[in-house]
Design a protein around this nucleic acid. Structure first.
Length: 316
DNA sequence: GAAGCGTGGAT
DNA sequence: TATCCAAGCTT
């Protein structure tokens, strides 16, 4: 009678142990997902690959509740990549509203243009082609390939990393930056069957978002709590270095946000004097505005006026 | 690998 | 009130 890692509360060490634990998790997690998955618009069949891609851009570091209304308006206005590509990038920035990180709007516009030019207007299916699009990194490429096209990819976002850190790693939180070990574990846990792998990806994310949350996980509602290495070990508190919370007040980011808010609301070009009113420290204010121009989020005009960009998006 | 990049709700 | 946190990407 061998004692398994799951039975002892120890984290699995070998690839075989990881795969074995994965096999025990697939059923409970996907069954839970069948019953508890939220009815989100980008999960409906009519969303299509473009809808999935738009949602993934918007959801990068932004909560679902704030994305929902902007997503709906976005898809009504720009139902296909070609529709967005046909408009100035500044319109994307304006429609982005207060979702935050407005460079994402610029990159989504640039991605739409690339899809139009390189892929005939259809969101590509290949992971490598997705990854080559502006604003698409490892996570988003895997997410679109998996959620939109049903492919088998390890989809490793902050939710999944936390679920795996706890259920398998026995730790409260994953490392600050994604590690090679995490990627390897995610691949080891991925079901062989393609449709099941796609469901697993969505289900593990949903579990992390709804139950295995960062602050206060609801283990009593968790379908795998009886197998959770972290819980079996007594839910030990995080011991590693604290994750640095970035201060916001007084930073360039705050100034950029204020400047861009004025430009989003403006109908036409905005005089320098109006922008000057949003922040009283001139050096930081100028640095922030220069940064927005360098990023392609703002276009300087003659006569000290500024507006959201009408031309093709800037680099990056 | 670390830093920079928005915004607002929850605790 | 201050801190944490939210489906990351790029340089």
């Amino acid at each position: 009678m061998t004692s398994t890692p799951a039975a002892t509360g120890a984290a699995p060490v070998t690839a075989a142990e990881e795969a074995a634990q994965g096999a025990r998790l697939h059923g409970p997690v996907t069954d839970w997902f069948d019953e508890h998955a939220r009815d989100l618009p980008w999960r409906r069949p009519e969303a299509g690959a473009w809808g999935v891609m738009v949602s993934e851009f918007m959801l990068q570091q932004t909560p679902v509740s704030r994305v929902l209304p902007v997503y709906e308006q976005w898809l009504v206005r720009w139902p296909r990549p070609a529709d967005l590509a046909a408009e100035p990038p500044g319109e994307a920035v304006r429609a982005w509203g207060r979702l935050g990180y407005p460079r994402r709007a610029l990159r989504l516009h640039a991605a739409a243009s690339a899809i139009q030019e390189r892929h005939g207007g259809d969101v590509p299916r290949e992971h490598a082609q997705l990854l080559a699009l502006p604003g698409v990194g490892e996570y988003t490429a895997a997410a679109v390939a998996s959620f939109a096209y049903g492919q088998r990819h390890a989809v490793l976002d902050t939710n999944v990393r936390r679920v795996f850190a706890r259920a398998v790693g026995g730790r409260q939180y994953p490392p600050n930056a994604t590690t090679a070990a995490e990627r390897k574990l995610a691949r080891a846990l991925l079901p062989e069957d393609e449709p099941l792998a796609a469901k697993w990806a969505a289900a593990t994310m949903e579990l992390g978002a709804l139950v295995c949350t960062a602050r206060s996980p609801e283990c009593v509602r968790c379908p795998i709590s009886s197998q959770c290495t972290w819980r079996l070990a007594g839910s030990p508190a995080h011991d590693g270095p604290p994750r640095r919370g970035q201060t916001y007040a007084g930073t360039d980011r705050q100034v950029r946000g204020k400047l861009l808010a004025v430009l989003r609301e403006a109908v036409g070009p905005v005089p320098q004097a109006v922008l000057d009113a949003v922040w009283d420290e001139p050096v930081q204010r100028a640095r922030a505005l220069d940064g927005l121009v360098a990023d392609g989020l703002v276009e300087p005009l003659a006569g000290g006026q500024y507006r959201l960009p009408l031309g093709r998006g800037a680099s990056s």
